[in-house]
Computed example of a mutant assay.
Amino acid sequence: MALHLKTRWKDETRDRSLGDVASALAAVAWRIALAKAINLHCERFVYRDDAQRLAVIQEYLAFLLQVADRLAFEALAEAERRALIVEFAKRLCAHVQDNGEDLLGPGDHAAAFLARLNERSDEYAEFQLTDEGPSYAFLRHLGHTIQTLMGEADENRWVIDQVMDKDGWEAYQDFRRAYRNLLG
């Protein structure tokens, strides 16, 4: 499934704040995560309900937040990196809250997602991201978390392979390109 992402600023001469960049990155990350969740369905993996689908999207968002943090570590001073990642996480929480209310009804969807981000941050800290991309263990962890969410019923038995071998890698590549273009 081809995904068209807006990854360049309309007016490239205008200065952008880290908040502007974080907002654009959050929109891109949401679109990537949503596309990957839809792709799993297209590949005949089965979601139990919208809550499970939203949880898969959140796993992709947590993964992309970790990617952003690693990319920012290479390119920004520590204070700028922290400001970008905190603002990026806040914007992701807003997306999850809005979409959670639309799909699941009222509730504090952002708080549960923030707890997930903090948990995943500790877990992903063990894995490497190099110039070649995320390590096998990095992608395996994403695949494992999604496999755990979707269960190991016959129709979902191989979801970890789909995520590790194709979808996780593509999500990384799409996000890395957007990150580099938007941060300039």
Score class of each variant (00 low, 15 high):
H4E: 15
H4Y: 13
T7L: 06
W9N: 12
R16N: 09
S17C: 03
L18T: 10
A24C: 02
A24P: 07
V28Q: 01
V28L: 04
W30E: 08
I32P: 02
A35L: 01
A37F: 06
H41S: 15
C42P: 03
F45N: 01
R48S: 13
R48G: 06
R48N: 08
A51T: 11
R53V: 09
L54D: 09
V56N: 05
L61S: 05
A62S: 14
Q66H: 11
A75C: 10
L76R: 06
A77E: 14
A83W: 05
A83F: 01
L84G: 08
E87S: 14
F88V: 02
A89W: 04
R91H: 12
H95W: 10
Q97H: 13
G100K: 02
L103I: 08
H109F: 06
H109M: 04
A112V: 09
L114Y: 11
A115F: 02
E119L: 11
S121N: 10
S121L: 11
Y124I: 03
F127I: 03
Q128V: 11
E132Q: 13
E132I: 08
G133L: 05
G133E: 01
Y136N: 15
R140L: 12
H144Q: 13
T145Y: 08
T145D: 09
N156P: 06
V159T: 09
V159A: 06
D167Y: 14
G168R: 02
Q173T: 10
D174I: 04
D174K: 13
D174A: 08
R176I: 04
L182S: 09
